[in-house]
């Protein structure tokens, strides 16, 4: 690892994780410190009782059924985008620990093939969705509504996904080598092994990790807190 890689694909990861977790906690504390409204502002018809309200809130948050009612294509697009993002995140956990039951079922080479297909498919879905969302912001009336933050986040995500696609489709490095890198991070001795260093991916891997860290750092201070705010606001709906 050169110094740039050591900083941005190494220590930057720790900074990012601390800011991400700390920032989200800080955001929640900040919300909780503001007084609640005395007024109930729910919308009818609404379920009664915290159990039924929570069930509705979870359904509204994870499946956004009103959007389905509004436009099937937007529902599908937004659903695919969020689901691909989530599954992509889950897929990365393989770099910490192999999904043993899946390997037992598919075999080692079957698992690699499975990962290539799913990871590749999600990468393409995300790329297409991000390009669509970005182009959409330049049309009327979205451009009048948008602020630089909207473009910045989409461009940042697009770059992260593009680098990921490079690693997936053009990289010559095997999963065990990436796992070595993740293990080096987990043991606080960030390093690329010889296989990575001699391959075609150090630049894309470093950029991928660096931008992902920037994304995590910005996350708690941006509109991305909708990922936690949605639970609260959708619960207010049935207040």
């Amino acid at each position: 690892m050169n110094w740039f890689q050591y900083v941005f694909a190494g220590w930057f990861v720790y900074v990012a994780l601390i800011v991400f977790v700390g920032g989200l906690i800080w955001q929640i504390v900040k919300w909780r410190r503001v007084a609640k409204s005395r007024i109930v502002m729910g919308m009818f018809p609404k379920p009664a009782g915290l159990g039924a309200r929570s069930a509705k809130m979870l359904k509204d948050t994870f499946f956004f059924p009103w959007v389905l009612d509004y436009s099937k294509s937007i529902w599908l697009f937004a659903g695919a985008f969020h689901l691909a993002g989530l599954l992509m995140f889950v897929g990365h956990l393989r770099l910490i620990h192999e999904f043993t039951p899946l390997v037992a079922w598919l075999g080692a080479s079957g698992m690699d093939q499975f990962a290539f297909l799913t990871g590749g498919a999600f990468g393409i879905v995300l790329t297409v969705a991000l390009i669509y969302l970005l182009l959409r912001r330049f049309g009327t009336p979205y451009k009048d509504l948008s602020v630089p933050e909207d473009y910045l986040l989409l461009i940042l995500l697009l770059l992260i996904v593009t680098m990921g696609n490079h690693l997936r489709f053009f990289g010559t490095v095997h999963v065990t080598d990436y796992r070595d890198y993740v293990m080096s991070l987990l043991t606080f001795k960030p390093a690329f092994n010889a296989a990575i260093l001699s391959s075609n991916v150090p630049w894309s891997l470093t950029t991928h990790v660096m931008l992902a860290c920037a994304f995590l750092i910005y996350f708690p201070f941006s509109k991305l807190v909708h990922s936690i705010g949605a639970f609260a606001t959708n619960l207010v709906r049935s207040e």
Partner: peptide, 9 residues
């Protein structure tokens, strides 16, 4: 609190 949720979300 709810208004802050709205504005941040």
């Amino acid at each position: 609190r709810t208004l802050k949720y709205y504005l941040d979300t």
